[in-house]
């Protein structure tokens, strides 16, 4: 028991950029198990609540199952969402996540997606916007097991830094032990396009409104097709307003 519950250390890859003091206040983190039966489809919107919060989802998709997960991680001094996904034959997992941080907040999204059997699909879209001296981390491991041919995994990870003092850690990672798989990951950390901002301002938008419009567009990619896309976008917009 003590081993399972021991607080991780920085040597633990999944907690490398974490706020361990904050983590200690919510440790141990209960695992929330989700099973989607063969051929079924499910979706979930996770918007963690609280100053210090950690969630850990363990998702198992049986043959031909589909699961769409949307995460809005914003407004926590410490907010961590961990997701482990096990994909059966022909299963499909989609993740759309936005992390919006300000002040000295630490936000983390840690995913581990295992293509255990052939022909499964995983698509992850992660957008982070970080202001102040906030830290946003995405650690995403995709493992394609031996024999899981026809796997198709994609990770699109982008972060926007609004201040020089903010930090984004992005580490998409692939471990492939099978042939004939399609894996793509893109990762970019940048700042808002200054010429785009000036263009919008020259039409009459205040600097904050111009930034908000561009950032809304930036994170919208994560929430395309969410069950209640408008409500999620509105919640994200409210969180964004707090960053500007």
């Amino acid at each position: 028991m003590s081993e399972v519950l021991a607080l991780p250390t920085r040597k633990d890859e999944d907690f490398r950029y974490s706020d361990l003091a904050a983590l200690g206040t919510v440790w141990p983190v209960a695992r929330e198990t989700i099973v989607v039966a063969a051929g079924e489809a499910g979706s979930l919107v996770v918007v963690p609540e609280g100053e210090l919060v950690a969630r850990h989802l363990v998702v198992s998709l049986e043959e031909g199952a589909r699961f769409d997960l949307f995460v809005l991680n914003a407004g926590h001094a410490f907010g961590r969402v961990a997701v482990d996904v096990l994909l059966g034959r022909g299963a499909e997992f989609r993740l759309g996540a936005a992390q919006l941080g300000n002040g000295s907040e630490t936000l983390e999204l840690v995913t581990e997606v295992t293509h255990a059997e052939p022909d499964a699909v995983s698509r992850q879209v992660v957008r982070s916007v970080l202001a102040g001296s906030a830290t946003g981390t995405y650690l995403g491991r995709v493992a394609v097991a031996r024999g899981a041919i026809g796997s198709d995994a994609e990770q699109s990870v982008r972060a926007m830094l609004l201040d020089r003092t903010a930090t984004a850690n992005a580490r998409p990672e692939l471990e492939i032990y099978a042939d004939d798989v399609k894996c793509a990951h893109g990762c970019a950390i940048g700042e808002l396009d200054a010429s785009g901002l000036f263009y919008l301002e020259s039409r009459g938008l205040s600097p904050a409104a111009a930034k908000r419009l561009m950032l809304q567009a930036f994170i919208a990619e994560a929430f395309v097709g969410a069950p209640d896309e408008d409500a999620l976008a509105a919640a994200a917009q409210a969180a964004l307003a707090g960053l500007l």
């Binding site: 396009d193 010429s195 785009g196 000036f198 263009y199 919008l200 039409r203 009459g204 938008l205 409104a209 419009l213 561009m214 809304q216 567009a217 930036f218 919208a220 990619e221």
Partner: peptide, 16 residues
């Protein structure tokens, strides 16, 4: 003229 992905003309012009 600058391209701004994801921001519609109508939305931005109305706000502006």
């Amino acid at each position: 003229p600058v391209e701004i992905p994801g921001v519609s003309n109508v939305q931005f012009l109305r706000e502006a």
